[in-house]
């Protein structure tokens, strides 16, 4: 009897079968890494460097989107399914804004694009923020005290609404995005590191540093962290919960809008349902790093970007999405707190 109880004490993954599963998963992961490593060695260092560059740039974009997921989850424990679509919307809005600010392919690569592009960035980010705040006000706030299922379903619905709006706007086609950034680059060790790559990494990096400073230093950032800990207590301290949550949605959307614009400038194409898989990738990144954890989201984004690039570059790219989603499931099953740990304790 005591023996069976001792077993009961042991959680699922540590039970004998679970241990076998653990072992098999680790072996499988090691096998995949081994195969990948063999291919990397076989293809030589310059190709690897190229893939790495691509992966870091890609990862920077995922990180921007992942931050929105992680902040909203951190504060109201909602998986905001619509967040990925806000990212796409950012791209769509900026492609609409470009001609208004006098930007078209003829100005590509000139120094004259810097200021208008900055304006496009800011306007896009503000519009995205405003849209997200409205969504929160209309769709999520009334459900804050409802059973958990309700806001989750609403978020899925909101994702479809946003996709539906973009579908009506541009249809099922790829939307071309003007190639504005210089196409030049530096050759280092046989790999070309483009101005585009540097642009993506630098812009995303600046945004993330600003965000990190904001959350750790500003009043609003402190209010956010307090709200994430305990809403009721925070309210008693005289902090406006609704404003704090709205601000979180605003900041998340600002980053997503920037991410969408960067994506457009980098890949020069968008499509209305891009946010579905990109959002899921970014969510995977957020979970990978430890949801609720801002540094974690950045790290997770980088890793997901690298894994995507490595798989695309060395293995069959049709399997890339399967791999990412498998990572999502495995992380949730074996390490739900992610790499850097959750800031929000499990209830």
């Amino acid at each position: 009897m005591v023996g069976s109880l001792k077993q009961a004490r042991i959680a699922f993954v540590e039970a004998p079968i679970g241990r076998l599963v653990n072992l098999l998963v680790i072996l499988a992961v090691l096998y995949v890494i081994f195969i990948l490593a063999m291919k990397v060695v076989g293809q030589g260092p310059s190709y690897f460097l190229q893939i790495l560059t691509f992966g870091v740039a890609n990862g920077a974009i995922y990180a921007l989107v992942a931050l929105g997921y992680t902040m909203v989850y951190g504060i109201i424990e909602l998986i905001n399914f619509a967040h990925g679509d806000l990212f796409t919307l950012g791209g769509f809005i900026s492609v609409f804004l470009l001609p208004i600010f006098g930007l078209d392919a003829s100005k590509a690569g000139t120094a004259g694009i810097i200021l208008p592009l900055l304006a496009v960035f800011i306007v896009t980010m503000l519009i995205c923020g405003a849209i997200n705040v409205s969504i929160e006000r209309v769709a999520y706030r009334p459900l804050r005290r409802a059973p958990r299922l309700a806001p989750l379903i609403t978020a899925v619905g909101m994702s479809f609404v946003l996709e539906g709006v973009m579908f009506l706007w541009k249809g099922p086609f790829n939307v071309p995005y003007p190639n504005l950034l210089p196409t030049t680059g530096f050759v280092i060790g046989g790999a070309t590191i483009g101005v585009k790559d540097i642009f993506v990494i630098v812009v995303a990096g600046i945004l993330m540093v600003v965000l990190a400073l904001f959350v750790s230093r500003s009043r609003l950032g402190k209010a956010m962290r307090a709200t994430a800990q305990d809403q009721d207590a925070t309210e008693l301290m005289g902090i406006d919960i609704n404003r704090t949550i709205a601000a979180t949605f605003f900041i998340g959307a600002v980053l997503a809008g920037a991410g969408g614009t960067i994506f457009g400038l980098y890949y020069n194409t968008m499509v209305f349902d891009l946010g579905f898989s990109a959002g899921l990738f970014a969510f995977t990144a957020a979970v990978f790093g430890g949801i609720g954890n801002i540094q974690g989201a950045a790290l997770g984004g980088l890793l997901i970007g690298l894994i995507t690039a490595l798989w695309d570059g060395y293995m069959e790219s049709t399997w890339t999405q399967v791999i990412i989603f498998a990572i999502l499931i495995l992380v949730l099953v074996f390490r739900p707190t992610g790499l850097l740990g959750m800031r929000v304790p499990e209830k």
Partner: peptide, 30 residues
């Protein structure tokens, strides 16, 4: 799929099933 994931919070199940739902058709396609 459920045995390891149902121990987690409810909303994680949503995302795990979403991932699973994306994997399976791709598996059949690939």
């Amino acid at each position: 799929l459920g045995a390891p994931t149902l121990r987690l919070r409810g909303d994680y199940l949503a995302i795990v099933t979403l991932g699973f739902g994306e994997i399976v058709p791709r598996l059949f396609r690939n």
